[in-house]
């Protein structure tokens, strides 16, 4: 663990630190998500690399994992922080105020998983059409259930 992480671990005792194939992972409680991200940014992690989510459907009590990859260009180092979002009303604090580059990818996660990012300036669908129902990357969203829209095609059964 590099010194920047040790200071963070002292400040946030609830955060669980893990090593995944040589990469540092921080499991952050949902309530501390924004506060922790702010501290991480102050520690020098200035490049927002990636945000995505994992749907654990029935295998976990908190259904969604929100995964953020951050990069420090000065050290250089990487940090992956993961938080959970619950089943009925998945909500996570948006990181756009800290890293404006989180705008598009958070919209993508909202579009694909239906996770609400609180404080996001423009949380709308980005890849799917605006009137789309459902969130395609959830595990309970079937594959290939859209009828073909040709004029003369037989009606979908």
């Amino acid at each position: 663990m590099i010194p920047a992480f040790e200071a963070l671990a002292e400040r946030f005792p609830e955060v669980v630190w893990e090593d995944s194939h040589g990469q540092q992972v921080a499991l952050v409680p949902n309530e501390q998500w924004y506060e922790f991200a702010e501290a991480v940014k102050e520690a020098g992690f200035n490049l927002f690399s990636d945000v995505t989510a994992v749907d654990w459907y029935r295998s976990r009590r908190d259904r969604f994992d929100v995964v953020v990859n951050l990069t420090s260009m000065s050290i250089p180092a990487r940090l992956r922080m993961i938080t959970t979002a619950d089943r009925e009303d998945p909500k996570v604090a948006s990181l756009v105020p800290l890293w404006p580059g989180a705008n598009f990818p958070e919209r993508e996660v909202y579009d694909m998983f239906g996770i609400t990012f609180e404080g996001h300036p423009d949380l709308t669908r980005i890849l799917m059409p605006d009137d789309w129902e459902g969130h395609p990357l959830r595990k309970d969203f079937g594959v290939g259930s859209v009828p073909v829209q040709f004029k003369a095609s037989p009606k979908a059964v």
Binding site: S20, H21, Q23, S49, D50, T52, V54, V67, N69, R78, R80
Partner: peptide, 20 residues
């Protein structure tokens, strides 16, 4: 079982792959 994130430098920038 596990998860990892690997990035390479593509002609357009950081191309990462996150697999669970």
């Amino acid at each position: 079982a596990g998860e990892t994130y690997v990035a390479v430098e593509s002609p357009r920038g950081e191309l990462g792959c996150y697999i669970v």
